[in-house]
Amino acid sequence: MKVTVYIPESSMRSPRKMVREMLVDLGSSLGIARQLTLRDIRSQYRQSVLGILWAFIMPVANSVTWIFLSMSGIVKLASTAIPYPLYALSGTLLWSVFIESLNSPLNQTNAAKSMLSKINFPREAIILSGVYQSLFNGFIKVILIVVVFMIVGIYPGWSILFFPFAFLSLVLTGTAIGLMLTPVGLLYTDIGRFIQVAMQFLMYLTPIVFPIPQSGWGKMLFNLNPLTQLFMVCRDVLSGVATNYLTGFFIVNAVVLLLLFISWIIYRAVMPIIIERMNT
């Protein structure tokens, strides 16, 4: 018979046992995550008339603003490999995918508070379900980008086969950063607000609506930003442009996977402490 022991000692003191439990729980959270995802997707638009359209309205409105600014000459932008309206549209849509996955660990955990404080189930399911939902919602946006690209005659070619990896790494990067901030974010709401502010700022340091500057310290900042590698690869692959960011892309991904693993350990270990102090 299975014996479960609860003691005050930190789980860090028996790392082998901890990793074993993490893997077991990850396995058993797959089914739950699937069910939670179905639950959220089903209920998300049931009380809405426009339904899934809302997934597009914000990013499209955002890119329209930038297309207007660029066309009217209010803002002078460097030239882009694809026509600027498409650059801005694909940028803002992909950015919204990234932001959603970044907010997801904190939002999902907050939404599951009442469950977390009453039912003992693998906590991984919450995070995993967030990843699933980001992938699902993101996938719809990607379809939109591809369709618009094709209409104006931009075809991705074989490089599209690489896109799922690029897309996954975009979502996992967001998840890793979001998950890292979640434990403190659950205690202090400052973290949630900080993310909002920081991300607005970060958007302009990433090739979303601005192309990478040709020279100067702006160019350096863009290149130092690890997100640049991810977004450039995503967009280049979608638009069939040869990309020179692959090396950086793989380095960033290796770091992200490590970060994801560490945040996972922290999330698990501190959950009992948070449930104890959380308002339910």
Binding site: K2, T4, V5, P8, S114, K118, N120
Partner: peptide, 22 residues
């Protein structure tokens, strides 16, 4: 139920656990 950790002592639970809490 394993939702929060004890501060002192030890809890040992055998077998599957069902909880009717809310």
């Amino acid at each position: 139920n394993g939702l929060i950790k004890p501060d002192t002592g030890r809890i040992e639970m055998h077998g599957s656990i069902g909880a009717l809490i809310e």
